[in-house]
């Protein structure tokens, strides 16, 4: 299993053609206390960069974009009642959705963990 990051601070954990998507702890910290997460419908086909979810903090609403194209197979329903999970565990229990990745070559444009850390340090 490998993990990739976007410049918008989404992460995708990849296992074969299955991906799990969330936002990075850095992003969660920047957003502040998350109070609501709007998740996509299961079965939705998303292109890379499509709006996949909306995360609302006490401060503002922010879009979460799909790191790669594919079909939504599962959403984290726990976030409906416990959106604060995103702050507590952005890279774990606070995941947003699972997907079937349509084209694995799209992962190549994303950052690996070391590169993403470097990217955040530069912000």
């Amino acid at each position: 299993m490998s993990i990739y990051f976007t410049e918008d601070h989404e992460w995708i954990k990849v296992d074969g053609d299955k991906g799990t998507v969330g936002i990075s702890p850095y992003a969660a910290k920047q957003l502040g206390d998350v109070v609501y997460v709007e998740l996509p419908e299961i079965g939705r086909d998303m292109a890379k960069g499509d709006e996949a979810a909306v995360v609302e903090s006490v401060k503002a609403a922010s879009e979460v974009y799909s790191p790669v194209g594919g079909e939504v197979t599962e959403v984290n329903e726990k976030l409906e009642d416990a959106p604060e999970t995103v702050n507590a565990s952005a890279d774990g229990d606070g995941w947003f959705l699972k997907m079937t990745i349509a084209d694995s070559s799209e992962l190549e444009s994303l950052m690996d963990e070391a590169k993403y850390k470097e990217y955040c340090d530069g912000l």
Binding site: G32, D33, V35, S57, V58, K59
Partner: peptide, 12 residues
Amino acid sequence: PVHYPLGVMKEH
């Protein structure tokens, strides 16, 4: 200051 380390929710 928009918030301190405590964060908006806890400050409120």
